[in-house]
Design a protein around this nucleic acid. Structure first.
Lengths: 204, 204
DNA sequence: ATGTAGTTTAACTATTTGGTTAACAAAGAT
DNA sequence: ATCTTTGTTAACCAAATAGTTAAACTACAT
């Protein structure tokens, strides 16, 4: 029984490819497994996406385009640095808990092929830290923040929010917690991380 | 011309395998490429290490045993929390700049196979956070530190030190720096990160 | 009903890749 | 000298895997 066009096989393929690529990576993923996951024939993958590379790129772009708006929130909105940090931290941690494989997938594949980010930056002119840096400089000069370098602060914010998810197996081993305990720890971080950062940079 | 025993082919294989596995990962690495890098026949890999999995495990253990002492320094020595943070930050960043592929390799492969860490913890009973947590609690009760949870502090320290190297391609894209600029930024972090953390937790 | 364009499948192909084998070389022991 | 153990190689093998093909099926327009 052949499926009809409007049941949208293409979407099913992309969904299956996401699951497999995000857990196994480009090199570890098998076209057959993607086909099986999508419940279709392997030839269909090549019918809709010419080859593994193109299918992978579709998945990667889709993943990145989920992530980019999260990052732009902190780079390009108009609230104070302090508000940005609080907002970003809670929103980002919630977001990642819904997409736990995402950050690791992006980082792993960017390390495998660093040129990928060049392609991305052409479509995504948004990823620009300049406004954020200017705002940090301003708030420092107003005496609202201690002397702080914008780029280092930005790296710190990303590190504290993203790293625990990327290094989850390592962290679980250290902290000796199971999946539930790990989640509780991450829930705590929604507020603790922003307090930690603001404590460090706020002038008082 | 067959090489003689004391030229130590086994060591050359491990060295080549390190290079290839750490840059390409288990799935991306090819036995042929490892053999070529070592300048020997592919069959030799199987002569010294039975198969790819065992060769990989040798590389992984060797990598992890480089990393473990770094982590134990912060967990199990007797200096104050503040000194620990300063020491760990400078030492760890210097260490990683000499072994740039290490953290990403470990994290990537632990995510691929989380059971791996169970094997490791059997040989490496050292990775225990309890002493660190007790010390944090003590220094909090002495009024030296603000109320701080030991496990969250530990996660923060790891995040701030390790993440920039793991996410290097992403960071370089944001900050718009080349390799040299990235290194300068990391040099700065040797002192900035510890100040950032201590600022946040020190009671004053 | 028939033709046509788009969709789906089973079977196939070419290549890559981890692993094996059997013969050969070197060095040391007897 | 020659036997044995260890190290090394080229050639080979089987399984896995990305990709192809040709036939068949479906929906739909005429």
């Amino acid at each position: 029984m052949a499926r009809t066009k409007d049941e949208n096989t293409e979407e099913q393929i992309l969904e299956a490819a996401k699951n497999v690529f995000q857990t196994k990576g480009m090199d570890g993923a098998r076209m057959q497994e993607i086909a099986d996951t999508a419940g279709i024939n392997k030839a269909m993958l090549h019918y809709y996406y010419r080859n593994k590379q193109l299918l992978f790129e579709a998945v990667f772009k889709s993943a990145f385009s989920l992530l980019a708006p999260q990052l732009n929130k902190i780079l390009n909105d108009d609230s104070s640095i302090e508000d940005k940090i609080r907002n970003f931290t809670t929103n980002y941690i919630s977001f990642i808990m819904k997409h736990p494989y995402l950050p690791n997938f992006i980082i792993q594949e960017l390390n495998r092929n660093p040129d990928f980010i060049i392609t991305i930056q052409k479509n995504n002119t948004l990823l620009n830290i300049e406004k954020f840096k200017a705002q940090v400089d301003l708030e420092v000069s107003q005496g609202n923040l201690k002397p702080t370098k914008g780029d280092q602060l930005f790296i710190n914010i990303l590190s504290l929010n993203i790293f625990p998810f990327v290094a989850k197996p390592l962290i679980k081993a250290f902290i000796k917690e199971d999946e539930k305990g790990f989640k509780q720890l991450m829930e705590q971080r929604k507020t603790e991380v922003s307090e930690f950062i603001i404590n460090s940079i706020k002038q008082h």
